[in-house]
Design a protein around this nucleic acid. Structure first.
Ligand SMILES: [Mn+2]
Ligand SMILES: [Mn+2]
Ligand SMILES: [Zn+2]
Ligand SMILES: [Zn+2]
Lengths: 150, 150
DNA sequence: ATTATAATTGGAATAGTTCTTGATATTGAT
DNA sequence: ATCAATATCAAGAACTATTCCAATTATAAT
């Protein structure tokens, strides 16, 4: 059972750009300028960017930020349960701001990663033959395939 | 729908050691001495070893084999659907000879990886809200947690 | 203000994996 | 059996995502 905090307030401007207010502290993690901008990008660009993707985008607002800091920020956000890290095989890690329980479908044709939720009422542990005594801390469901748009 | 080939014959000797006969060719892949020994180790040591684990063990029988060759063999076996590659986050890849559809439970206490099968009659695609038109080629289910042996 | 603690930066280091190149082995045809 | 074509292997170099390190800067506490 996870508790969700209202970490961000989204509002639309007249010019359709999106403003995100991010509080000073989230889940006990101090929101420095770097962490705030990294988190903002994940909120806005919800296509599971890599650390390098985030690095390139964040430079618009913080030209002096380093890639190491982006990794540090992402790790801090992951550690505090504010974002999720998503891995496909041996590819670069990707990052996801969607905290609801979901899996990932990787479309081999376009490379796009789609969030996939479980059908209502489904508990993954129920459909698996777990070893007796297993306490599940985390689940990852990854799918590969194609999206046929007939 | 996957077709299974009878790739190995297992027999026990009087001294309880295990002999494995591996055919000359599997799924169109030529079984060289190196590939045969790599595959034999995966069959015998069913604890999802890393490439380096396999490398260390295979040197008993092929003292001159190189790590690159172990990687090449593992890749060839994976490519031909004879074994599976298993990844946990950013850890080293592990290899699994169990071709039946199954997931992996990683016990954080012992480090042991347990194969986890789906309950009979369960089709994972049925419990997921897939994007319309999605054709699933592969599924990966990974669990982390503890095994309480009370 | 001073001091202590935490975060950031840039570059070096690490580690798993892949690539390259030359040697060896295997296959298939003569 | 000989030869040419192809496949595989070995050794080490190269690659790349990520982490580590040391120095600097920012923030928090007193
Ligand atoms: Mn990308
Ligand atoms: Mn190991
Ligand atoms: Zn996601
Ligand atoms: Zn397995």
């Amino acid at each position: 059972m996870r508790t969700y905090f209202p970490v961000a307030m989204v509002s639309k401007n007249p010019d359709h750009s999106v403003e995100i207010e991010i509080s000073e502290e989230i889940s006990g993690l101090r929101m420095t300028r770097q962490r705030r901008e990294v988190y903002r990008i994940l909120q806005q660009q919800r296509n599971h960017p890599t650390a390098n993707d985030v690095f390139m985008r964040v430079k618009d607002r913080l030209p002096n930020i380093s890639l190491a800091t982006v990794y540090n920020c992402l790790e801090a956000l992951v550690q505090h349960g504010i974002i999720r890290q998503v891995n496909f095989d041996r590819e670069s890690s990707r990052y996801c701001p969607n905290l609801s329980e979901h899996g990932h479908f990787h479309d081999a044709t376009t490379g796009v990663i789609h969030d996939v939720s479980f059908k209502p009422g489904i508990n993954l542990a129920d459909v698996l033959d777990l070893p007796p005594g297993a306490i599940i801390d985390g689940v990852e469901v990854t799918l590969r395939g194609k999206l046929v748009t007939s």
